[in-house]
């Protein structure tokens, strides 16, 4: 493992499988009477959230607490950021308080990279979602969920077919998933209207399509992406109704899936928009399980980044600027 987790591309196949195997062992903890481990006692994890989040922040908080780390939650609202403090000064403050890891969510793509490579802080940086760029722990928990259902929790996802549908353009989840699933050997197809596919998608390690029905019959997993209206400042599709008819997953489309296929959604869902309520609540929907798997996967990431010896100064990026 590297010192930071900034992108799903930071993980090679062995690293990714190590995280997934570690998460599988940690998931067993959920069944125990005492859901706590002493492993990160005395370490401090700061949740630095510049963007709203429910499940990711709570998930990281639960993960850190189950490993006995001290958790400091920081949200931009009600902090000095609203008085105009820069990312650098916030980071220096956290460093002065002795943060061993900073979990950062930021609206600007690349903010975690800046934090990790600027020399402002000495601890590990975990990207919890930056702009429209990446969300690597979401990709890990999705891969964990797929592996549990499609591969018996062993090995990689070689040959499994995953269809990711919807607002790829604004989705950090889609990008991280494509990178990680390619590393694990899965075949990914992105399905979206042309306006919601990013420029340069042809260089991603996946196929693309505009036709959802054509990519359901042979899918092992279908992942629906949230239509991110808060990031949409132009007309990407004519109407919500038309989007829903062409790219929403309803009962008819779900019936096209093979029996073993699972339906996923990173949340929060727009019921009736990209996913119908009957699909979201169907037995093959693993959306709630994704949330609980998120805690196990984030515990694994925090343990692997913080549980061992801190890497030497030689591991820091030599190109870092102060």
């Amino acid at each position: 493992m590297k010192r930071h987790l900034l992108s799903a591309a930071d993980l090679d196949r062995d690293d990714a499988l190590l995280v997934l195997d570690t998460a599988a062992e940690l998931a067993a903890l959920t069944d125990r009477a005492v859901k706590k481990l002493p492993t990160l006692r005395g370490r401090t994890v700061v949740n630095l959230f510049f963007e709203d989040s429910t499940r990711t922040r709570i998930s990281f908080e639960a993960a850190a607490k189950r490993l006995s780390a001290d958790v400091i939650n920081f949200s931009a609202k009600g902090s000095s950021v609203s008085k105009g403090e820069s990312l650098k000064d916030t980071a220096l403050t956290l460093e002065a308080m002795g943060a061993d890891a900073v979990v950062i969510r930021h609206g600007a793509s690349g903010a975690p990279h800046r934090l990790a490579h600027s020399g402002w802080i000495g601890g590990s940086v975990v990207n919890a979602g930056d702009g429209t760029h990446e969300h690597p722990t979401q990709a890990l928990l999705d891969a964990f969920t797929m592996r549990r259902h499609l591969a018996g929790s062993v090995g990689d996802l070689a040959g499994r077919r995953v269809t990711i549908v919807g607002d790829v353009l604004h989705s950090r989840v889609a990008r991280s998933n494509v990178l990680l699933l390619a590393t694990l050997g899965a075949e990914v197809t992105l399905v979206a209207p042309p306006t919601l596919l990013p420029v340069g998608v042809e260089s991603w390690p996946c196929a693309t399509s505009y036709d959802l029905d054509a990519h359901l019959r042979d899918a092992d997993a279908v992942m629906m992406l949230r239509v991110q209206r808060e990031r949409m400042n132009a007309a990407f599709f004519p109407s919500a109704r038309e989007y829903s008819r062409r790219y929403g997953l309803d009962g008819r489309r779900m019936a096209l899936l093979p029996d073993h296929a699972i339906v996923m959604h990173p949340g929060p869902m727009n019921r009736g928009m990209e996913i119908a309520a009957e699909v979201a609540d169907a037995p093959r929907s693993v959306i709630v399980e994704q949330v609980s798997n998120g805690v196990s996967v984030r515990m694994a990431v925090l343990y692997l980044l913080l549980g061992g010896a801190q890497l030497g100064a030689g591991e820091t990026d030599p190109a870092a600027e102060a």
Binding site: E25, P38, T39, G308, L311
Partner: peptide, 21 residues
């Protein structure tokens, strides 16, 4: 019973892989 997460020398080596409990 895997003892990795309870070791007293965790910080003297890179994080170890967990074994089954």
């Amino acid at each position: 019973l895997d003892i990795t997460l309870f070791r007293d020398d965790l910080r003297q080596a890179p994080a170890r892989a967990l074994l089954p409990t």
